[in-house]
Design a protein around this nucleic acid. Sequence first.
DNA 1: TCAATAGTGTCTATTAGACAGTATACC
DNA 2: GGTATACTGTCTAATAGACACTATTGA
Lengths: 313, 313
Amino acid sequence: MLLTKQKQQVAKMTEIIMRDRNGLTEREFLQKYDASIYERPSVTVDMLIFTVFDKDQDNYRKLPEKSLQLLLIKRGEHPYLGQWALPGGFVSVRESIEEAAQRELKSEANIENLYMEQLFTWGDVGRDPRTRVISSSYMALVDRTSLDVKAGDDAEDARWFEVKHQVFQEKKTVLEDGYEFERIIKITLNHETELLAATVKITTMITGRTRRVSREIVESQGLAFDHAKIIEYAVERLRNKIEYTDIAFHLMPPLFTLSELQQVYEVILGKELLAAAFRRKIAPMVTETNEFTKDAGHRPSKLYRFNPNWENI
Amino acid sequence: MLLTKQKQQVAKMTEIIMRDRNGLTEREFLQKYDASIYERPSVTVDMLIFTVFDKDQDNYRKLPEKSLQLLLIKRGEHPYLGQWALPGGFVSVRESIEEAAQRELKSEANIENLYMEQLFTWGDVGRDPRTRVISSSYMALVDRTSLDVKAGDDAEDARWFEVKHQVFQEKKTVLEDGYEFERIIKITLNHETELLAATVKITTMITGRTRRVSREIVESQGLAFDHAKIIEYAVERLRNKIEYTDIAFHLMPPLFTLSELQQVYEVILGKELLAAAFRRKIAPMVTETNEFTKDAGHRPSKLYRFNPNWENI
DNA sequence: TCAATAGTGTCTATTAGACAGTATACC
DNA sequence: GGTATACTGTCTAATAGACACTATTGA
């Protein structure tokens, strides 16, 4: 750790001269420092592990539909016993948040070394009935083919749920000094017979100099804690980022067709795209190979590979 | 709190049926729950309060230049005694992170009700020499004219520093399975004779399925903790967001000229813009008034106002 | 008058959207 | 041959960049 090294140097330099109002040097101060006098919150990480599945298709000619999937764990303990929650756990004082997130990823989904990004830190007072819990949410994207079967194993009570995110209602109210914009989102999570549903209300208030966005759970069936809110947030972020970054490729296998890639974009964005425009846009990010798909009831498709050097420099 | 209400309903429903492996109901479990058995980190908020100042101009004809300013506090205690730090403080267990951030904003800069946004939560183990501290950083944007003189008051040891963010070096190394991209950024913070400087190295590694970005402080003069890293991150975020959102208007007074607005964009983006294109782009976000600037040594400029309804719905 | 800024018109290059039209496998 | 997907060409609309040109003030 460079910082620590640098810290030590600074400490050495200041030690000679700098004494605080109690006449203590920094070293003396730190030796006496007792952190236990303040009451502290617990800190957890919540992992949003997304992947994309192919849905079964009866017609041999048709391409299988894609679906966005999220990994959830059935709670075996109070609170919210029996309900479904995001995988996650407490951050120990001896590991970074990032390390805790990696650890959870490894233990819940048996995945190492994949795309992971911090989303948001949730810090409302009442969000966990046990005690004050602050939670950092991380989004991870996995390609289905690299997934270990262990994840989603019944014994573990971890399952992949198909995620649907629909705008149910939009309302705009003009205020004297701006306006209020309210969106009601329905989140549905589906695994075979298990169906979880939640409604989240997002309120954006713009008045004068302020802009404030707040998320509120209106209803949550089968989902533990405030996880409906976190899932809603994550899907929005995924949707935004897929438009201007290359994160979608983390959901793809090493070789893929442009139609498959387009399907992934479509299922995340929740709308259809025009093939010609999509191909133009995506072209610099991929490299074509000489391989083709086979055994489809239609024209074979060229296989592509992600081009990690597509970005301008 | 809607969530709490909902929580209680769920609790009532499950109480009758659901017992955990120890035969406890949720209520019984929660009554016995002892959070104190786990060692917990401290949680703080760090505020990045930005504003824009006019620099003095000797030539009466010339427009004053704009500069991006950040509020820093001189540390009166160990650790980093005498160095400059972001305003901030511990999050109490009885307030949300957001509330803690609002409270800091009020106490350090005497500002209420302004634009504020969570940036990132920093959770490395060694980032605070006192104890394990996890810190959520929030960015706040203030318009200079609405600022209370109290902020920047000498007695408080809070000062506005001009922020400069320069890319010093860029390096790309091609690896077998992707590449590594390294950027070295120099941050300078300036208040009259006080000059703080820091160098931050940002490494982006893209190999196979992974993409990992890490920030490291190479050197930090006069800046406490890992705040150089946080400042660097905030400036980048501000730069990105100004391009596709309307946050720049939080830095403007109620009435402003398009030239002033363009100057603000330029100082944040660190590059010059073409007036014609800028005006086209910004046009839907503003409403013109009938007022003009006066007493300039040149053609007066029309005053505009932010149009909170510019967004498409 | 002139220095400096304010503001507009227009040509060009680039990009996104729309859609028709051609290509090609497998049953 | 027919079905379903793969892939390309081209017209159009919208947008960003470049730059010249006109407008207007106070000293």
